[in-house]
Amino acid sequence: GGVGMATGSYVPPKAVWLPAMKAKGLEISGTFARRGGGIHMDLSLTNNAMSIMTDFAIQFNRNSFGLAPAGPLQVLTPLAQNQTIDVSLPLNTNGPIMKMEPLNNLQVAVKNNIDVFYFSCQYPISLLFVEDGKMDRQVFLATWKDIPSENETQYQIKDFHLNSDAASTKLQGSNVFTVAKRTVDAQDLLYQSIKLTNGIWALAELRIQSITPNYMLALKCRAPEVSQYICQCYELLLRN
């Protein structure tokens, strides 16, 4: 963030999710953001058709974490030719659940006065990292021991130059909480916890060596299929 801006959860840049040529002139670009403990789908709608667009509505297919619109898509005035409007759609996680492949895939239907259009997009799973995800230290140690080593996944995150304090601060902005830090043989080991909106916890050990620019990330989770998506988020959060 710039001067005077609060640092917060990582927000990916908007991407084109629905090109105009596939939607009779409607172009949709968007991103996902976690703000003030809430989840938002931030959309830009552009009318590239020859007539005005009205009567917008949005619907999600069931998905892995129950993401659903928390209200209607608020497009209150007709969208004129060549006009773009920005809309922020609040989401909740109370929708129907179906495991998607990839896990963070979301299928969306958008309707207007012309037709119904469909597209898929993917959200960073850090969207689902909740604010009360700092695990008690005693519980962390017990959980770390209790989760079997088969449920541990290790990743190398290459070419980073942040020190452990900077990494810890950056990650905390997206609700990855450092529970403990230890230094052993010129390596900093950060023990971190993450809680997802569906109550799944992930425990992490981030190992930072001063002599190499590579981090080692070990993730322990009772639902190990989410680990690769959490690792992707570490990369994104640390690089942005």
Partner: peptide
Amino acid sequence: ELDDDLDEAFSRLAECRANP
């Protein structure tokens, strides 16, 4: 005392992970 025990437990965990 619990705090000291937890500090010690994290140190042991880190030691053990860094030097398996």
